[in-house]
Amino acid sequence: MKKILLAFGAAAVISALAFGQDTMKKSIIGVAIPSADHGWTGGVVYFANRTKADIEKMYPGTTVIVKTAKDAAEQANQVQDLFTVNKIDTLVILPYESAPLTTPIKNIHDKGVFVTVVDRGLTDESAQDAYVAGDNPGMGTVSAEYMGKKMNGVGNIVVLRGIATVIDNQRVDSFEAVMKSKYPKIKILDKKYANWNRDDGFKVMQDFLTRFKKIDAVWAQDDDIAVGVLKAMDQAKRKDIKFVLGGAGSKEFIKKVMDGDPLITADVTYSPSMIRDAMNLTAKARVTGSKMPVKTIIPSVLVTKANAKDYYFPDSPF
């Protein structure tokens, strides 16, 4: 397989060198992603469709087919259809779930399709050629570093968790690790699940406010949760909390950071635009025959007033 790819790559490079742009390899790229069932996946769909247009313009002759699925079973069928009906030679997939999709992806990979997996790794890594993902532990680390520094290493915080998943565990574990080793005087009063949504953020924060009379800062981990947190603080008229740190980089919160909101002083990215990076890297590798890195980690970046405008996409749904 690798040899074939190499040969393909070499042939593409040679022909590109010899005959210029016109003879670049024409590729059919299938993109399989979850449907827009919440804000973040809504962003994934938005960026996938935008990037499809970019790629088709940049590499004439290359076709990009975007498919959205509402569950793992539907996505598995789409993978098969993309191969047999659309005759794709390249697949970029953000798997709905890792385990049930590994076999269908492996099947078409074995038949010669180049596979880039995004965000959620497969259970069998031999079924993928490249992996592009966000940095969940990094998101926890960056958040803890920022909060620790801003609080001068002292104070009480509460943590609102997401949904009990590997993603959430990685974020929270690395957050706590930094706090423990570098900022031991910051006390995590409690942490409770707020399920990455506004209503639960509101409810959990109300109860934190009832329970703790002095909170210095809140790690909401996610911008949607933070919306609920802010409302609960507003309702209880609590002034002890100096700032709230969300995460994921929604346009609403990036805007707040940009405008210098007193409570939302920063945000940490975990951007759905990782699908764009994955598609661009893959298309470039396939069309020009360059080699694609086996593993690309899109780092989580601290967004402050200084760099907020680079992360502001007003027409994205997220």
């Binding site: 827009a36 069932d37 804000g39 996946t41 809504g42 609403e252 994205s316």
Partner: peptide, 10 residues
């Protein structure tokens, strides 16, 4: 979800 384009209506 369609009306919200997958995001949030505010």
């Amino acid at each position: 979800t369609q009306l919200a384009q997958g995001g949030t209506i505010t």
